[in-house]
Design a protein around this nucleic acid. Sequence first.
DNA 1: CTTGACACAGAACAAGCGTTCGGTTATCAT
DNA 2: ATGATAACCGAACGCTTGTTCTGTGTCAAG
Lengths: 226, 226
Amino acid sequence: MMMMMVRKSKGLGERHQKILDFIASYQREHKHPPSIREIGEHCKISSTSVVNYYLDQLEKEGLLERDRKISRGMRLVGNSNPLGDMLRVPVLGVIQAGEPILVPSESPFTPEDSVEIATSMMSSKEKGKDLFALQVQGDSMIDAMVNDGDIVILKPAQEARNGEMVAVWLNDRNETTLKYFYKEKDGYRLQPANPAFKPIMVKKNESLDIKGKVVMVIRKVDRLVA
Amino acid sequence: MMMMMVRKSKGLGERHQKILDFIASYQREHKHPPSIREIGEHCKISSTSVVNYYLDQLEKEGLLERDRKISRGMRLVGNSNPLGDMLRVPVLGVIQAGEPILVPSESPFTPEDSVEIATSMMSSKEKGKDLFALQVQGDSMIDAMVNDGDIVILKPAQEARNGEMVAVWLNDRNETTLKYFYKEKDGYRLQPANPAFKPIMVKKNESLDIKGKVVMVIRKVDRLVA
DNA sequence: CTTGACACAGAACAAGCGTTCGGTTATCAT
DNA sequence: ATGATAACCGAACGCTTGTTCTGTGTCAAG
């Protein structure tokens, strides 16, 4: 006689996990959910009703959501969900001292590369798709706590409110830099993120060229350093 | 007589864009692609054949991929694709000087929160799901170029290779810190990421408690700073 | 004025697919 | 034993959905 998978409703069974894993991997590969029959084939379940049976259980346990009556109408919930909203932010070039910063309109070429950021990591209003990214080259931003190789995500802007971190072109110093912006009575104060560094004071008559607001800094540490 | 949308094959039309946008928003909402008829309804196209007609064009222009014969078998390609592979990394707690670092096995509770990272941002081998994240509290990591509030993504580890950034518990100093790890002849050298700081030398007999390797640092700058 | 492409509509067809129902086997408490 | 329940199978039903075919009005080139 055939052996049944004995589980008797004590939590998640092997079959449940296998189905969950398959949905995740299928979704990763095809970018859309599998059909009931496809799940059945892969998990060696010969009847669609059994797959449906398991899917219902997974839904009851809150691991899956189903849109009844519509084909492939399912999605994984919680940590197992491999797909999520993301923004593809184009990396327009590099930012370094001594060279003007690129802004989207100035970029002559299509972005060579881009970085993907989960929308859940973005604050509500930065989710517009005008964001762009730059890779920091050199150690000139260490006072802004930004390392060589870091990726900064920027939102185009020509002005800023107090406390916002901006990318500015300092004409008299001939350099691009990242600083917290503060408007003061006699001009502007550009405060480094690192409290060990002193602020830069810019007088009202001097030109202050804000290029964008920094919304995120990302550092991949998988590379080695000397 | 009825006015036709005249486009005559010169690039992308208004209709094409509307369809693209609808697929993206539908996918964002339902986590699976729409059906041809759903596209038609929303874009005011009364015939499924016309939707199919447009979908074919979008595919030819490389903006869409289609899995023929299967329901809702389509996906956006390139920058318009709102969905992508991501890892949900649990934020297990905070890391701060003076307190031991949490490692996954020590965490007694389910993660309160988590951060979503695109797998494309991860180097190949860190994609296992044993990663965890900690939020930095305080300014004690500024020599590691890590700011108050930053989120560090860690991979559990008890040992490290030269050049890797590790989270260590320094017993004699009674603090947690992030440093680049180097094994030397008489012990270990812990190098701050910021070149302005001096390395910490640890002798062989002293205890060096590596808790994990840092694979990424993320800083959300949308919050304001004093 | 014709011709042909383009942009549609509508209907019909055939798969794809979720759902349901009757039936079977195994395990377990009573 | 026996009934209840969980874990299945297989088949049928019918809606969903992609596909295809015929036809129509528009517009620009010849």
